[in-house]
């Protein structure tokens, strides 16, 4: 099980990192989401144990599963969700100001602006 989880974490992280390097902002966000899920899954995998449900009164006869990782992962998922929402909001704003959901376009717009600034400075 640990092996499967580590493989999935690796694939998720790799795919996420690949998407992060794309110029399309939506892909970048999907990349962030994938990386966040890789982290969540790693967190789940870190305390994986199989046993009785950890509900009071505890059954002392055999092992109980670790409830902590579930709580941690839930917290991390909520944080990841908040961050995704924030990024989507940011993309909308970037789009509104640059009219392009694409980093290449944004970079070109920036370069044009810089060039204008340079011209102004020279003329002064």
């Amino acid at each position: 099980m640990i092996l499967v989880i580590s493989l999935v974490v690796a694939i998720l992280f790799g795919a996420g990192a690949y998407l992060l390097l794309k110029p399309d902002l939506f892909r970048v966000i999907v990349g962030v989401v994938l990386v966040s899920h890789a982290a969540n899954l790693a967190l789940m995998g870190s305390g994986l144990s199989r046993g009785q449900p950890p509900i009071y009164p505890l059954p002392f006869s055999d092992g109980i599963s670790d409830p902590l990782v579930q709580a941690l992962t839930l917290t991390a998922i909520v944080i990841g969700f908040a961050v995704t929402t924030l990024l989507l909001g940011l993309v909308v704003r970037v789009y509104r100001s640059h009219f392009a959901p694409d980093l290449d376009e944004v970079a070109r717009a920036e370069a044009r602006r810089e060039a204008e600034l340079e011209r102004d400075e020279v003329s002064i």
Binding site: T85, V92, R93, Y95, R96
Partner: peptide
């Protein structure tokens, strides 16, 4: 929160003339 966020982003994207 989920529906509110999605609704708000959809509205904002439409205002920005987006494809969302």
């Amino acid at each position: 929160v989920v529906t509110g966020a999605v609704g708000a982003i959809a509205r904002a994207a439409e205002r920005a003339g987006g494809r969302a």
